[in-house]
Write a protein that binds this DNA or RNA. Structure first.
Length: 641
DNA sequence: CCGTTTTCGGTTTTT
DNA sequence: CCGAAAACGG
């Protein structure tokens, strides 16, 4: 056998070589979770218990999916063709593309990201004449998504005459109809629809149940109801589940994650086997004990104690900054003095807005960095504008693309005119594109609008046989977007043009297939651009704590440890303190050798200067392991230690 | 009727 | 501080 079972410890080996059945692996941070998952797959294949096309591996993030794929590839002697590995959303999407007819979808269905979803709702509010103060689109969005996460359609919700609920349900219903009519699927819909696809097509279900006899799930503690139902359905009577989880790292409750799914799985499936991985191979003793002590404050946990053979190592440092600029300065100077590799350094924070101070401090010192999350590539204004043109070219009835682009850049088509178009579209039950052809308007408005329609038709003619990246280039110029952006400040304009250049580049990867454009748009919505190829790889990594899950670094700065920020105020208001604590636990356990905790005595919040208390989490860590460090006031660069 | 300026309200995490 | 709606000027 090619895979080296000897590199596994006893518990890991038990999990990897367990006889076929449902296996739950309680895997603490740094206990070799991914290793176990990938070795299990390799073991199944190499012992001939499975063919690669019998395996389905599901993760939550694209990053994790890619990691899994490449690690499996590295373990195997032969290529792993036929193996499906991807995110829940990615796999659901794949099924829907393959079986769009059975799923009752138009072949050209499109994915709506959360911004598009909100805009769609906003339009719907206008059409239904709803007061968007009282029934804000944002609230409706949350209502709809959380119900879809629970697997509930509007008609499935029990309503005993509650006025608010009635209103929300009618919005949900109307939204569903709009989406169906226009062939739009939001993220939650991908999951729900693919669940329904399998549920309502027994023949299809059977063939997939037969195919995917081995289902591997990463981060199982973060599955929500619909994801669980989907797994349950797909596994059927014969399929074997192999799930890896850590209840202490459950941080997606806000997105509907149900930690109870662990219990549920043990009840719903006979003869499950639980394996615990508690030996940590990642962090020093001090870091691990800090994490253990903190998380012990949570009441709701299965309970486990990570241990290591490693030395205590360096203490955990705590820095108290005067203000956020000082916090950033401290971190940047520490990084400057760091002799190791830069990609081994991470700056972690609770909210993405915190990244700016660090960016500035690093920029000033010419330390290369890379930001994950925040405003992702495909979410940028200029990218979305350009993609909207592409969408409209592909699919003239795409109302959200139409609305986005009709007066971007400004071409004299105002709100009033668009309102007219919307009205006609609504009345006649047609798309805005069709409505625009026949809407009665005064000559001036009519001319500008027709000029736009003509522009799109002309572009469509001219571009239809060009390769995708050429199309992007042409749209940039013909639409007037480039001139439009050039009117902004110089750096802003440069950045936008650079991004558009990058977009054209990205398009090149999608030119082989037949449905190049569709594939490209799907990619944009589903993988909103983790990898902005920004030159050198030797970068300090900046990211939110959520984005950091599953990663590890030699040196970690955990910043902004202040009451109201971390734990975050909204979580405090909603009594979700334990989840915040788990998030902190995740942050600490990212560090291998060195950990710095930072908090600031003052910080800008909502445009005001605020003086927050240090985070309670600091007080919950073991005093003896934490060393306080601080610049002496007024003594310039000299330190007190 | 369009585009610019001013005011107001609201801020988490992600596929 | 940020983006979106209301007020105002052309």
């Amino acid at each position: 056998m090619n895979i080296s079972i000897e590199t596994l410890n006893k518990a890991q080996r038990e999990a990897v070589t367990a006889p076929l059945g449902h296996i739950l692996v309680l895997a603490g941070a740094g206990s070799g979770k991914t290793k176990v998952l990938t070795h299990r797959i390799a073991w199944l294949l190499e012992t001939g218990q499975a063919h690669s096309h019998n395996i389905l591996a599901v993760t939550f993030t694209n990053k994790a999916a890619n990691e899994m794929r490449s690690r499996i590839e590295a373990l195997l002697t032969k290529p792993s063709g036929g193996l499906w590995a991807g995110t829940f959303h990615g796999i659901a999407h794949r099924l829907l593309r393959m079986h769009w007819q059975e799923a009752n979808l138009p072949q050209a269905f499109q994915i709506l990201d959360s911004t598009d979803q909100r805009r769609t709702l906003k339009r719907l509010f206008k059409a239904l004449n709803l007061d968007d103060k009282k029934w804000s689109p944002k609230k409706a969005q949350k209502f709809i998504n959380s119900h879809k996460d629970e697997g509930l359609r509007a008609k499935d919700v029990v309503n005993e005459g509650n006025a608010w609920l009635t209103q929300m349900l009618s919005i949900y219903q109307a939204y569903e109809e709009t989406c169906q009519r226009t062939g739009m699927l939001d993220f939650a819909e991908l999951l729900l629809r693919s669940y329904e696809l399998l549920r309502d097509n027994p023949f299809l279900l059977e063939s997939y149940q037969h195919r995917f006899q081995h289902i591997q799930v990463d981060e199982f503690q973060d599955t929500n109801t619909i994801q669980y139902k989907w797994l349950h359905l797909l596994a059927g009577d014969q399929g074997k589940l192999f799930v890896v989880f850590d209840d202490d790292q459950s941080i997606y409750h806000f997105r509907g994650a149900k930690i109870e799914n662990i219990q549920k799985l043990q009840e719903d499936f006979a003869d499950t086997r639980l394996v615990r991985l508690e030996q940590n191979y990642r962090s020093t003793g001090a870091i691990l004990e800090t994490a253990n002590t903190l998380i012990a404050n949570n009441k709701e946990r299965l309970g486990k104690k990570l241990w290591t053979k490693d030395e205590a190592g360096a203490p955990v440092f705590l820095y108290t900054a005067y203000r956020e600029t000082d916090e950033a300065r401290f971190v940047a100077e520490k990084i400057q003095a760091w002799r190791g590799k830069r990609q081994e350094v991470a700056i972690l924070y609770r909210t993405t807005a915190q990244s700016r101070e660090f960016e500035e401090a690093l920029l000033q010192r010419r330390i290369p960095y890379r930001i994950y999350g925040g405003l992702r590539f495909y979410e940028r204004l200029e990218i979305k504008d350009t993609l909207a043109y592409l969408r409209l070219l592909l699919h003239r009835d795409d109302d959200s693309a139409f609305e986005r682009v009709v007066n971007t850049p400004k071409r004299g088509i105002g709100e009033r005119t668009i309102e007219m178009v919307r009205g006609v579209a609504r009345q006649e039950g047609i798309s805005m594109w069709q409505a625009a052809q026949r809407v009665p308007l005064k000559p001036r408005a009519r001319n500008t609008l027709f000029a736009f329609l003509e522009l799109i038709d002309r572009l469509s003619q001219r571009l239809k046989d060009l390769p995708l990246h050429e199309q992007v280039e042409q749209i940039k110029l013909a639409s007037g977007l480039v001139d439009h952006y050039k009117k902004e400040t110089k750096e802003e304009a440069e950045r936008r043009l650079e991004n558009l250049e990058e977009l054209a580049n990205a398009a090149r990867y999608f030119e082989k297939g037949t449905d190049a454009l569709t594939a490209f748009l799907d990619h944009a919505a589903l993988e909103s651009g983790e990898k902005q190829s920004n030159g050198s790889d030797d970068c300090v990594q900046l990211m939110s704590l959520h984005a950091a899950k599953g990663l590890e670094f030699e040196l970690v700065f955990l910043c902004g440890l202040e009451e109201g920020l971390f734990p975050h105020q909204t979580s405090l208001d909603e009594f979700r303190l334990e989840e915040e604590r788990r998030l902190c636990y995740v942050g600490i356990t990212r560090a291998r050798k060195h950990l710095y905790l930072c908090h600031s005595e003052s910080r800008y919040r909502y445009g005001r200067r605020d003086y927050p208390e240090p985070s309670r989490f600091i007080g919950e860590m073991p005093k003896k392991l934490i060393k306080e460090v601080r610049t002496v006031p007024g003594s310039g660069r000299k330190r007190a230690w």
